[in-house]
Amino acid sequence: MKNWKNHLLVLILVVVAEAIGVMKFKFGPGTIVLLPMLYALIMGVFLSPKFLKVVNDKDMKDAGSLITISLMLLMARYGTTIGPTLPTIIKSSPALILQEFGNLGTVFIGVPLAVMLGLKRETIGAAHSIAREPNIALISDIYGLDGEEGQGVMGVYISGTVIGTVFFGLLASFFAAYTPLHPYSLAMASGVGSASMMTAAVGSLSAMYPEMQETLTAFGAASNMLSGLDGLYMCLWLSLPATEWLYKRCYRLKYGVEAPKVKQRSKSNPSKGV
């Protein structure tokens, strides 16, 4: 209770968001589902120093330190849904593990696009993954968050937090309505390492397939948990080196010169960025 104002504001936002409840809109054969967490997120944005100035920079820094704890509670809740469907999840384990190769998709699509838009070393942090908490830690350890790579990963992290929840909810509904993909596969695909994005996508799928709600939630939660476990190693050993390699080639194609070499963060002086 060090910062009582933050706790009070969170309580008010949660009460208001829950009072609004889940809103569903028909979109062709699909359904757009807006969850209370989205309302809380939007209201929180407007309380920031850039808008209504209800909170200051110190309040935001204090709140940021609680994100991991809050997500632990959410994932503990999802963990209770995994147990009853564990046999089904075990049968699908190869698919859950192989989906981590999807990290490479962000590299081969994101890097050329970022370089074309004029980004430099920010491309490395922005396009090596979907930039959630483990990826921020990885970039911070290798390059430092005060460098260009750190700016890139933080930019995508913030954009994903604000836009990603809505995008994932819409994307899940679209694919469920217009493609032959099974709802279970879509639930697996929603577990990219972000609890909020996964919740939005599974919420949309559950609204369309209420009879599958428990299994969909279990698949999404299990997939998200595995993404947090092996996704970091996938980024470290595959996607980050691939990002560096592709960035250098895209940079040469665009500017006609070799990309400037940047030293990685010094292990002997971890406080110094690049």
Rank of each mutant, 00 (worst) to 15 (best):
V162N: 00
V162F: 02
G164I: 01
G164Q: 02
T165I: 06
T165L: 06
F167H: 06
F168H: 11
L171G: 11
A172T: 14
S173F: 15
Y178A: 05
T179V: 13
T179S: 15
P180I: 11
P180F: 12
L181I: 15
L181M: 14
L181G: 08
H182W: 15
H182Y: 14
H182K: 15
H182V: 10
Y184P: 10
L186K: 08
A187T: 09
G191F: 10
V192F: 12
G193C: 05
G193R: 00
S194N: 02
S194M: 09
A195T: 08
A195D: 05
S196K: 09
S196R: 05
S196I: 10
S196V: 09
M197S: 04
M197I: 00
M198N: 05
T199W: 04
T199E: 00
A200L: 01
A200C: 04
A201S: 06
A201K: 04
A201T: 02
V202N: 04
V202H: 04
G203F: 09
S204N: 07
L205Q: 03
S206A: 08
A207M: 05
A207P: 06
Y209W: 08
Y209V: 00
E211T: 08
E211L: 12
E211Q: 13
Q213A: 15
Q213Y: 11
E214N: 14
T215D: 14
L216V: 14
T217L: 14
T217E: 09
T217A: 12
T217F: 12
T217P: 01
T217K: 13
A218S: 15
F219L: 12
F219H: 14
F219P: 13
F219E: 10
F219S: 12
G220R: 13
A221I: 14
A221V: 15
A221Q: 11
A222S: 12
A222W: 14
S223A: 15
S223W: 15
S223C: 14
N224L: 07
N224A: 11
M225S: 10
M225Q: 07
M225T: 07
S227P: 09
S227F: 14
S227H: 09
S227W: 14
G228S: 07
G228Q: 01
G228H: 01
G228K: 00
L229C: 02
D230R: 03
D230S: 05
G231F: 08
L232C: 01
M234T: 07
M234H: 04
M234A: 05
M234W: 03
C235S: 12
C235R: 11
C235G: 06
W237H: 03
L238F: 07
L238H: 01
L238G: 05
S239L: 01
S239Y: 06
L240G: 01
A242V: 02
A242R: 00
A242S: 02
T243L: 09
T243S: 03
T243A: 06
E244R: 11
L246R: 05
L246Q: 07
Y247I: 02
K248D: 03
K248F: 13
R249M: 06
R249Q: 02
Y251V: 01
K254F: 03
K254D: 00
K254S: 01
